[in-house]
């Protein structure tokens, strides 16, 4: 059975994520709301199914993201059954 390149890439990414969970104390997944984050989150859901991915998502929020991005951010976390941590850097907020 020939695996397609996407099947191999996905399997490798899943292997990496499981290693992270097995070998770290307090892992997190950075989530930028972009397409790469969307794909990464999807792979994570597949890696740990039927459990939700055993780490939270972290969005470093510049407060300057598009409205559509904030909407998807909340939905993506809810769909995955994961916690979404939003961190706003106090210094940078002041600098704006």
């Amino acid at each position: 059975m020939n695996l397609t390149h996407l099947e191999r890439l996905e399997a490798e990414s899943i292997q990496i994520m499981r290693e992270v969970v097995a070998e770290s104390e307090n892992p997190v997944m950075l989530y930028s709301v972009g397409k790469d984050s969307a794909a990464m989150l999807h792979v994570a859901r597949k890696a740990f199914f039927p459990a939700p991915p055993p780490f939270p998502l972290l969005h470093v929020d510049t407060t300057w993201k598009f409205k559509d991005m904030y909407a998807l951010r909340e939905k993506a976390a809810k769909d995955a059954g994961m916690q979404m941590l939003v961190y706003k850097n106090p210094e940078a907020v002041d600098a704006h």
Binding site: M17, V20, E23, S24, E25, N26, P27, V28, M29, L30, S32, G34, D36, S37, A39, M40, A44, F55, L58, V60, T62, W64, L85, Y87, K88, N89, E91, A92, A95, H96
Partner: peptide, 29 residues
């Protein structure tokens, strides 16, 4: 200025704030 403060300092602070030891990111080679 904007990017440096947010992406670099913000991320470092956030990781330190929560004490995360491993952070998964979506960067590609």
């Amino acid at each position: 200025m904007h990017t440096d403060l947010w992406k670099t300092e913000g991320l470092k602070k956030a990781l330190d704030h929560y004490g995360f030891d491993v952070a998964l990111g979506g960067a590609r080679r």
